[in-house]
Amino acid sequence: MEQELLLWVRGTGLQIASAVFLIGMVYRMLHILLLGRKHSLAQPRGSEWSGALRTLWKRTFVSTKLSARGNFTVITGFIFHIGFFVTFLFLSQHIDLIRAVLGLHWPAMPRGVIDMAAVLAIGAMVALLVHRFVDPVKRLLSDYQDYLTWALSFLPLLTGFMLLREIGFEYITLLTLHIASVELLLLVAPFTKLAHMFSTFISRWYNGAVNGFKGINI
């Protein structure tokens, strides 16, 4: 049964999850773009593109002075995102998968680095969840989606780490759980705010384009 389940998540399950993810994401992003915006009739003072590209990059780093809670969010958020992407992109097993699907590959990072990145990312996520509960601003803003997407992002990290260390369950169970948790994430991502993984770049583009048009170097 376990082998069959693993086979299913590695095969049909992955096909379904990838299909839903791509249909949803392509639909969502294209739909946003197709909604269109009015092009300004005002005389430009700079270029939309240069402003857009600048913001695309620069907004990765928040330049505004923040309060302690703001800094906490930025730093923890950074640790989570970096940890997540390091484990996702540089664990040799993940590179094997990417190579199998896309034909692309690159050198893996040492396991020690991956372990540390995973632990940091898991720790950062827990800290961010606690902060979401205790910080009045976040508590006010949060709805069920915030907790759902937190859980769905957390599970792949947790099961992935358990799998590397074979904690709690057998390898095969953990591998099945890990792949299944990723598939769950893929299924839900396009329909929740996890879509920010792509729309962020559209948002930054539009924000930067407005400033670029006005010739404001921000």
Binding site: R28, I32, V62, L66, R69, G70, T73, V74, G77, D135, V137, K138, L141, S142, D143, D146, K193, A195, H196, S199, T200, I202, S203, Y206
Partner: peptide, 11 residues
């Protein structure tokens, strides 16, 4: 795009 992207970080 903006509403899609907001992650309720509160910054």
């Amino acid at each position: 795009s903006f509403f899609t992207s907001c992650v309720h970080c509160g910054l």
